[in-house]
């Protein structure tokens, strides 16, 4: 009902101070000469590298490539995972039959599929999307399934009392009842997918942020390496912040306020 007003002096200043402190520490270590410049680039060198990468356009291209792959893999996994989870959640027999194998794949690192991904799809978009899909689809299935199986019976009885039947049962009861949990899973899964795309591109890519990291390593450009690390981390945060917006939808708030 009542939202606590965000307090600027508590929510903005302390994290800003910590970040500035980290950069100062970074500068101090690099100035101390404990590491060689090529193994520990200074903040200034990274800043120069950043502007260089922006000017030649490579950073933006790699970023768009990686985001495209994550989006494709993630959308595919959601589009397939949610209906599958809905089905498994409603059918106990199917759940018993499929659960062990889904658990197996869920616990198998998607990166182990990399050699097959390259054999089947070659180097490029398709194999990266395939790996992201594999990393996301099983968690989405499992979470949707558990959410459906745990919907209180009382909701379906109420639905029956008030003449909600058939397809309406799915759209007006089942889906809204699982939505908060599904959104939470999508957040976790998107983070996972972002981790996987970088790893996938390091091995099976000719572009993308993961490939850029590998390329910087091969060119001994540790300054660019740091640029890419910062971008990868920031984008991960941005993706999560975007998905958090879904939890602000009025009709799902109940799922987060108990």
């Amino acid at each position: 009902m009542e939202l606590r007003r965000p307090n600027t002096t508590r929510t903005v200043l302390p994290p800003l101070a910590v970040t500035v402190g980290m950069i100062l520490l970074w500068q101090a270590v690099s100035a101390s000469g404990a590491f060689h410049e090529s193994a520990f680039p200074s903040p200034l060198a990274v800043l120069r590298g950043f502007s260089e990468e922006l000017k030649n356009g490579r950073l933006i291209n790699d970023l768009i490539t990686s985001l495209f792959r994550v989006s494709c893999g993630f959308v595919l996994a959601t589009a397939l995972g949610i209906p599958t989870g809905l089905w498994l959640g409603q059918k106990l027999a199917a759940r018993l039959a499929f659960l062990p194998i889904i658990n197996f794949f869920r616990n198998l690192s998607p990166l182990a599929w990399m050699p097959f991904a390259i054999l089947w799809f070659g180097v490029g978009d398709a194999s990266a999307i395939f790996l992201i899909f594999l990393s996301a689809v099983f968690p989405v299935i499992l979470a949707t399934m558990a959410a459906v199986a745990n919907i209180p019976t009382v909701y379906f009885r109420v639905a029956q009392n008030y003449g909600i039947n058939g397809l309406e049962n799915l759209t007006n009861v089942t889906l809204p009842a699982i939505l908060p949990q599904v959104i939470t899973t999508l957040r976790v899964t998107a983070g996972l997918a972002w981790l996987v795309v970088v790893a996938a591109e390091m091995i099976a890519g000719r572009d993308g942020l993961g490939f850029a990291v590998m390329d910087s390593r091969n060119g001994l450009r540790s300054d660019l390496l740091v640029v890419q690390m910062i971008v990868i981390g920031l984008i991960g945060v941005v993706i999560d912040r975007l998905l958090v917006q879904l939890t602000r939808i009025q009709s799902v708030r109940w799922g987060y306020e108990h």
């Binding site: 009382v154 909701y155 009885r157 109420v158 009392n161 009842a177 939505l179 009709s251 109940w254 799922g255």
Partner: peptide, 15 residues
């Protein structure tokens, strides 16, 4: 037509 009132949580929380 029969309608039931429950102990608690009979309302749809998303409505």
């Amino acid at each position: 037509e029969v309608r039931m009132v429950y102990q608690q949580d009979g309302l749809f929380p998303w409505l």
